[in-house]
């Protein structure tokens, strides 16, 4: 059964291209969200296996959303993403409780699968 993914990003062009790529590579993109609040709502409603979560969201940022998803226990695996590099966030990405971090330009089914393995 395909891994279900919720894509959270405030840029529609990224959401569209990420959906296309991941679906091409066998993932089941079950939903999209454009900000932190709706990410939490959609995650609760859709119960995806993975949330592909942009760090720089308006309002609640990616780190805060990760904390809240993790706080409920047994939530989805969170993979943070950003057009900036992981090291731009210092140790925050490591400490956030996310499964991993993928720079947006390097997103593929393979890199995502490697983090989920």
């Amino acid at each position: 059964m395909a891994t279900s993914v919720l894509i959270v990003d405030d840029h529609p062009s990224f959401r569209a291209s990420a959906r296309m790529l991941l679906e091409c590579e066998g993932y089941d993109v079950v939903g999209e969200a454009a900000d932190g609040e709706s990410a939490l709502t959609e995650a609760a409603r859709l119960s995806p296996d993975v949330v592909l979560l942009d760090v720089g969201l308006p309002g609640l940022d990616g780190f805060e959303v990760t904390n809240r998803l993790a706080a409920n226990g047994g939530g989805p695996a969170v993979v943070l993403t950003s057009s900036r590099e992981c090291c731009d966030y210092g140790s925050m990405a490591d400490c956030s409780g996310a499964r991993g971090f993928i720079t947006k330009g390097e997103l593929s089914g393979e890199t995502l699968g490697a983090l989920l393995a």
Binding site: S13, F14, S17, M20, L21, C24, G56, S83, G105
Partner: peptide
Amino acid sequence: LHDGAQQRLVSLALTLRAARTR
């Protein structure tokens, strides 16, 4: 730059990658 050119180039890269997969 972050919201404009960078995002478009990223989308382009992902689209290319999807095309390569197909």
